[in-house]
Amino acid sequence: MRRASILAASATTLRTLAAIAAGAALWYAMRLCQGALRPVLGRVPEWAALAANAGVEEALRLGLALLIARYVRRAGLEPGTVGLGVVAACSLGALENASYLAAFPTLDAYWRLGYAVPIHAGAAALYAIGTGESKSPDGASRPTSWPAGIAAAFTLAWAWHSGFNIVAALFPFPALPIVGTVVNLIALSALVVALAIRYGYWSVYAAR
């Protein structure tokens, strides 16, 4: 029993570390893809370039979420394990912040904690809600309505990300950091609660 619990804890730790590494790999992949698109995006209006870059990031993030969901199903893990996508998003956010800090070494970079990191984490939470499976009251597992739910999640995350980027680049105003932080944190809080209920309390909601 003790050995089983140690093994279970080790497996959880390994999965967490793997999620962190996946976030780092995702960040690198995003930079590569955006770098490859730069010659093309240099000829379009700035708002279009910002939206395209956001689309690249969200598409890659959704790909990672689908991979995680598939791994969870195949390995027979708890459905809530798809929440590791948020861990990967935080790892990505940390790397992005570090690269930004290296380029612009000012204390203003700390605003990214409220303006940028919740965008990554919120999108990952949204994908985790849409890509995971749910257990019916009779114990049979079935995936949620994949295509519609995933498409909606992707559209919403892309629009949110693009909106923040475009406003920050083209329509900045003095209160933008704090307004963006507040809005982001409200959205992230709602998504986190929804994620917890989705995978932790769905049995109660499904019963009645």
């Binding site: 708890e78 861990v87 990952a124 932790g200």
Partner: peptide
């Protein structure tokens, strides 16, 4: 966010 969204158990 990583702490908050860490995997939840269905038995909660």
């Amino acid at each position: 966010p990583a702490f908050l969204a860490y995997p939840a158990r269905r038995s909660w």
